[in-house]
Amino acid sequence: MSTGNMNLTLQVWRQKNSKSAGKLVDYKLSDISPDMSFLEMFDVLNEQLINKGEEPVVFDHDCREGICGMCSMFINGQPHGPKDLVTTCQLHMRSFNDGDTIVVEPWRAKAFPVIKDLAVDRSAFDRIIASGGFVSVNTGNAQDANALPIPKIQADAAFEAAACIGCGACVATCKNASAMLFVSAKVSQLALLPQGQPERYRRVQSMVAQMDEEGFGNCTNTGACEAECPKGISLENIARMNRDYFSAKFISEEEV
């Protein structure tokens, strides 16, 4: 069915469920087209496995256009593979060479337990958002959208932080499995906007507390997260979050 001419060896992490141990399993693939996406290459593998009567590899994916943040493969030692600024679903086989061996593992972190094969549980991110990653405004309470002019550079900076897709590559690659880039992106987005001010110091404290509770590691500023983030979320956000956190703890009188 495929039309290309690449031959590959895959070493894929197979793990039955969260309780069992996993291991890398070798698969050979031939006639892979360089125009295929990495996930389409996995489709080919799965079709083969099904036809052979074996269990296909479970992996997370949905939009396949780099925006939902669901795909999550640790490819040859890097989250989302070797190319900068792309997600796994947007990685194409032309980034590899004929004859390559490709090792594929799930995200690994205590806070992201493996569910099966390459799929992990990232619900910790949802809980962090639920702890404070919002503006408390009920539906119907809003004033006219243009009543509050926001300088373009501020709006743009907030947008850049808001571009995070919640994929977790930052955690996956960080030697400490720290979630600081993800958390700081949300904290920053709202800290940069006037709408976020009333809850600014409350928010940063609750979100950091939740992040710690989930068992992510501590940031040591290695910068790996920024380098691997498919959306180019900047380390500046982490500094901004730290700043807000200290202001919240040392200056604000509100106990959270």
Binding site: F134, A145, I150, P151, K152
Partner: peptide
Amino acid sequence: QCVAQGVPLAREYGG
């Protein structure tokens, strides 16, 4: 509603 939630919609220089 969306602007009140902090959705960063595109803006002009005048804000």
